[in-house]
């Protein structure tokens, strides 16, 4: 599909560096949580963004394209293609949602579709917490690295405060280090099959043709067969060990659990 120009209907500030953009794109109503859009700002660039509800994206300012997006106003237009990729499989039972940093975006969308849930949300500081309002209808535990809100530490530290085993489904999105720790813990408890994670890689085409986002060693395309994967599909993968940059070079993942 070609990028389709849509109006930004509303912009909501999310803490210090993030904004939610509500788009006038009614055809996205059928999207599944976990799916993503390719967002195009003409003459500036195109980037992948998860849906944070069926008609919004929530974007952190990090570089050229996201900064330009942050400068836009309500009534401006951006191009989108999608929704693309495989979304979360939604469970009727009790769900555990674990988000680090901008990982809250797809899980906020998911929270609209699950019945009973506990959400573990982590960020660097209080000002980096986004979309908390979406998680308030469930049980909500917060961690910040500097202790400015909730428990001081990483979101994965919050796992010790709950019992992972009792949940029927576990959904996680965040940096690779966090995902690796959750994969390891789920493996230990023999519940990898209950885990679904949202994976980020360098996307170029977003439609499964260029090979930029492929995971070792299975060769699956994150943009096409993912970005949501079952725990057992990716336990043995490169996640948390290395990833590929825009040129395809392998970049080692640091030991830091930083989010």
């Amino acid at each position: 599909m070609l990028p389709r120009m849509v109006e930004i209907k509303e912009i909501i500030e999310e803490g210090r560096d993030a904004k939610t953009f509500i788009l006038d794109a009614p055809w996205l109503k059928g999207a599944t949580p976990g799916q993503f859009l390719m967002v195009w700002i003409p003459e500036i660039g195109e980037r992948p963004m998860s849906l944070s509800s069926s008609t919004s994206i929530t974007v952190k300012r990090v570089g050229r394209v996201t900064s330009r997006l942050h400068d836009m106003k309500e009534g401006d237009f951006i191009g989108i293609r999608g929704p693309y990729g495989r979304g979360f499989e939604i469970s009727d039972g009790k769900s555990l949602l674990i988000a680090g940093g901008m990982g809250s975006a797809p899980l906020a969308f998911l929270s609209e579709r699950v019945n009973k849930f506990t959400a573990l949300i982590g960020a660097r500081t209080k000002d980096d917490l986004v979309l908390l309002r979406k998680f308030s209808k469930g049980e909500l535990l917060i961690a910040t690295e500097d202790g400015s809100e909730g428990r001081k530490g990483f979101v994965t530290d919050l796992i010790d405060e709950i019992e992972m085993k009792v949940y029927d489904a576990i959904y996680a999105c965040g940096p690779d280090g966090m995902l690796r720790e959750i994969l390891d813990r789920a493996k230990e408890l023999n519940i990898l099959h209950k885990l679904q994670i949202s994976v980020e890689r360098y996307f170029k085409c977003g439609i499964g043709v260029c090979g930029s986002c492929v995971l070792d060693p299975s060769g699956v395309r994150v943009c096409k067969e993912g970005p949501i994967f079952r725990g057992e599909e990716v336990f043995d993968s490169e996640i948390g060990r290395y990833r590929r940059d825009a040129s395809g070079r392998r970049v080692k993942y640091g030991n830091s659990k930083r989010i």
Partner: peptide, 8 residues
Amino acid sequence: VLGMSASS
């Protein structure tokens, strides 16, 4: 087409 890595 895909050929960026051995795995693919």
